[in-house]
Nucleic acid binder design. Structure first.
Lengths: 347, 347
DNA sequence: TTGTAAGCGTTATCAC
DNA sequence: GTGATAACGCTTACAA
């Protein structure tokens, strides 16, 4: 921000409003301390005094300055949330519920996107730490060393989400991507399918998709099989990429019998494309998605997919932070939420 | 937060880390003022001094305290964003781009949900003002009097989004919902359809949907027609509500020829349901959506809809705040982004 | 139950 | 180009 800007902003602030605690105290005929108490621990103040103060607050339209409060008390009432992208409904859903829960407890949420990059995440962590948040909610367990170090040094509670397979720095709320892959393999195998492909994010970007692939692969290996193809799409993946994935799979093995897509958006667009091309699903090609998004159940055939309780993850993550802050829980914790394979028409 | 909590948090902070500017200054052999300058206006510091300070910062892992900065400078580098819900992709998209743009300028975004309630929005504004944000981005132009008063008094730049029809408090970036309704009416009329229905949000919740309905209605009136039905669904509207809307319309008028849905999610689920029921779209029932979401183009028939540049709205809103802050723009402003009727298969 | 005094960590101001 | 000192608005600790 330019020099001129700072001046402008400052003068704006100084002229406008600018009611502070002393002003309230003066009007109420008390000390600032009493005003402070009315705000944070009203039960310690005599009823009459309290009413006077409350009246003065209303009259002056007093709004406390949280920066001053933080400086004096070292509690920010801020939780920092870093997700790969708000454009993916998965994360948007999660954040929705994080915000909802935290709002109720008068915490503010500051949000940032890593764009699927550990380095960008590191910069965000660094920048968010300047606000002295009372908690961090990150996505996944893959972080730079500096990110870990910064967070550890800060002593802030950290929740890592969406990854129940790997060890967390502090607390974690996630699900087993590995298990998801195995479940899907199991399903395909139970239908006697052997030519099975995987379509997901690039392996250097999407570590949780990697785990799903590994799960699929390991289960297939147990049956003496190997995936016929693995397609890696660059993130973020717009829905239309499902068709690209489909085409790439078919280019590698035109006789592919089943595809596991790492996201329902991809699976849905691929399935609709199959319909358009007259490829019969699931007879000719079985399709399984991941996430159980909107419309998974509305298309024909309905999409077989793995349901993930994204909202629950958001709620649990927020609660994990809150529990640590109010002391009801002390150490590290690892929460794994269950996945559910929804067998519908497409596989 | 409980008394015990405050103590615990405080002690954690005091023990862990706690490197401050004086520590850096001491190590670098300068004053805090010089450290401060290195951080905000490096060009004012001699190269040698600067390097010493930068070295000390790295060595100590110093992280500035933005609360102290705000207190001293009255610039928070925070923008508060309030949307109805992050569960709706529309707003998630918008926020995604707001965050992206503001991050680049080292602003943090704090986010809140109004849940389509003006009263909740008011509480959020009140609570966010405690953080002394440098800007506010709100959704729509419908707010309580107190909300307006608080924002006006604070002197903070405010951008209202998504509503280009009504007067804004300060700045606005939106589109004409009225025009959207008229466009869709025009389309239906051009196809000779006369029995036209509308499905949208409850009129006391979704004011922008109201405007779309009014646009539709006014254009129909010019042709001597009136809508055969208007369905009001309670927000938030899950995709499946599209089917409910469809059924309600058909219950009122089984001969309805066309439906304008206030969101693509509704339109898509209704269209897929028509397919399932063997109702031919558009011959038997024409369907038009709003928003041009994912999959609008992937289903069969492809959804005719109104494309809204949600991302662009986010970018423009963020830029409007930035422009005001750096003084390049002074007064109120009203930006209206264009809508585009995408005529595809469904109408 | 209430008040007084001393910080919290930074930046603005002015002097050098 | 650099430093000393006084804010910034609130809470904590202690005293009354």
């Amino acid at each position: 921000m330019s020099e001129a800007t700072e001046k402008r902003v400052r003068s704006r602030r100084l002229s406008g409003g600018g009611v502070k605690m002393v002003d309230v105290a003066r009007l109420a005929g008390t000390s600032t301390q009493t005003v402070s108490r009315v705000l944070s621990r009203p039960e310690l103040v005599a009823d009459d005094t309290r009413k006077l103060v409350e009246q003065a607050i209303r009259e002056l339209n007093y709004i406390p300055n949280s920066a001053a409060r933080l400086l004096a008390s070292s509690v920010s009432h801020i939780v920092a949330v870093i997700i790969p992208s708000l454009s993916a409904t998965v994360y948007a859903q999660e954040v929705h519920h994080i915000v909802r829960v935290l709002e109720e407890h008068s915490f503010s949420v500051v949000i940032g996107h890593s764009d699927y990059s550990e380095l960008r995440e590191e910069r965000l962590v660094q920048s968010f730490l300047e606000r002295r948040p009372d908690g961090f909610i990150l996505t996944g367990t893959q972080h730079t060393d500096l990110t870990r170090q910064l967070l550890r040094n800060s002593g802030v509670p950290v929740v890592e989400t969406f990854d129940g397979d790997n060890a967390a720095m502090d607390m974690s709320v996630g699900f087993s991507n590995l298990e998801a892959g195995r479940k899907v393999a199991e399903l395909f195998l139970s239908r006697g399918l052997t030519r099975i492909a995987y379509v997901g994010g690039r392996s250097d970007q999407d570590f949780r998709s990697n785990a799903r692939f590994e799960g699929l692969q390991s289960r297939l290996a147990e049956a003496g099989l190997a995936p016929v193809a693995r397609i890696e799409l660059t993130l973020p993946m717009p829905a239309g990429d499902g068709v690209r994935g489909l085409d790439q799979v078919l280019a590698i093995d035109p006789l592919t019998q089943a595809i596991f897509f790492s996201a329902d958006t991809l699976a849905i667009s691929a399935l609709l494309e199959c319909n358009r091309r007259g490829m019969r699903v699931p007879e000719q090609l079985a399709i399984c998605g991941f996430g159980n998004y909107d419309f998974a159940d509305a298309i024909v055939p309905a999409l077989t997919t793995v349901a993930v309780p994204f909202e629950q993850i958001g709620v649990l993550a927020a609660n994990a932070i809150l529990a640590r802050l109010d002391g009801s829980v002390q150490g590290p914790s690892q929460t794994v939420v269950p996945l559910q394979l929804l067998r519908r028409g497409s596989a």
